[in-house]
């Protein structure tokens, strides 16, 4: 078994750190380019709630001081960096005074559960289907999957979500319309709760699966066609190997390699892609949190969620970089140059 050289590991870690650092800086800069003053928004919200606010100038100043908005930008930036390292994204302006990290901590497990479930299911179904589209021995029926995959890929997830809700939740009543778990069940490590979660998660997951499997299937199809023409597949056939064995060990095994890289990149993108799905299913995940935060111009939450997305993408790329040489012997852990 190979081992990972320390210099390579350090190099990758440095890249990981730099990626996260640059991205964190960007998500700090971008909202500050917006002309909106979050203190004024809060004041507006208070005014809307109470009818009128006396001494608004003093309250504004107080709010700015509380959020550190009256510091020079550079100090704000340094404070932000220090806080980010400890996952302290400050307090939400919309649901003041809840810490952003608490909001994320509540939402993240839901999203990760939904996302990992749907991503893995899609990855397996999509790639298998893509492989079967090319394989000579597969049933003719699979060929039908090509137009189907293309149609589904071009549907926005919000529509597939609405369609599924209408069929399976509103008409057939097989699944609940919204929510992450039943109102009557107590969250905890019980079977009842677990079943409720799966029951509620099924439709949102399915709506993600049916619009994304085409991405994998069509990508895999292209890769498989290339692999099918390779000399080693011809030789495998000439060796009299069993067709199924050739499919797995010679074709899929080689064609899947670029898909694994794509998988790592998709991890981060998926939270963003899930925003509307979570929104229509009223699923309390990161997507809904981000959606609400954008509506409320809740900068700390937007920053926090964006940071988590970046961190997850960078981490999954980092992990794939480390494991790639183990799944493709031609790639080596190049020591840093």
């Amino acid at each position: 078994m190979r081992t990972i050289p320390t210099s390579y590991l350090l190099n990758r870690l440095l890249t990981l750190f730099l990626t996260v650092f640059i991205a964190a800086t960007l998500i700090w800069i971008i909202p500050r380019l917006s002309p909106v003053d979050p203190a004024e928004i809060m004041l507006g919200r208070m005014a809307a709630g109470a009818g009128a606010v006396a001494d608004s100038e003093a309250i504004l100043a107080q709010l700015r001081a509380n959020f550190g908005l009256d510091d020079p930008l550079f100090i704000q930036y340094l404070k932000y960096l220090c806080n980010t390292v400890t996952f302290n994204f400050g307090l939400s302006t919309a649901t003041f005074p809840t810490p952003v990290s608490a909001l994320i901590a509540n939402a993240l497990p839901w999203t990760l559960g939904l996302m990992i479930l749907s991503l893995i299911v899609t990855f397996i179904i999509g790639n298998l289907l893509g492989a079967l589209m090319v394989w000579e021995e597969s049933p003719k029926l699979v060929k039908v999957a090509i137009p189907a995959a293309m149609v589904f890929t071009s549907i926005p997830p919000i529509l597939s979500g609405l369609l599924l809700m209408w069929i399976f939740a509103a008409n057939l009543r097989w699944f609940p319309l919204t929510g992450a778990y039943g109102l009557t069940v107590e969250p905890g490590w019980t079977w009842e709760f677990a079943i409720s979660v799966l029951h509620h998660g099924f439709l949102p997951a399915l709506s993600i699966v049916i619009v994304t499997f085409g991405f994998w299937a069509l990508g895999m199809r292209g890769l498989m066609i290339t692999v099918q023409g390779e000399d080693y597949v011809t030789l495998a056939k000439a060796k009299g190997l069993k067709p199924r064995y050739i499919l797995y060990k010679y074709m899929i095994r080689n064609a899947i390699l670029p898909q694994i890289t794509a998988f790592a990149l998709k991890v981060g993108l998926l939270i963003a892609g899930q925003v509307l799905v979570e929104r229509i299913f009223a699923y309390n995940g990161m997507g809904k949190l981000l959606y609400d935060a954008i509506l409320d111009q809740d900068f700390p939450v937007i920053q926090g969620v964006s940071f988590v997305i970046i961190l997850m993408t960078a981490l999954s790329v980092f992990i794939v970089d480390l494991i790639y040489p183990f799944i493709d012997p031609r790639i080596r852990h190049e020591a840093s140059t």
Binding site: E230, D231, Y232, T234, L235, A236, K237, A238, K239, G240, L241, K242, P243, K249, Y250, R253, N254, I327, D328, P329, R330
Partner: peptide, 24 residues
């Protein structure tokens, strides 16, 4: 036919560069 390949008639391909599965 599959059983006859390699056991009764074997094939040595052109372009050995790419005739072997790169990940095995």
């Amino acid at each position: 036919m599959r059983k006859a390949r390699l056991r009764r008639v074997s094939y040595i391909p052109q372009g050995a560069m790419n005739s072997l599965n790169p990940i095995m």
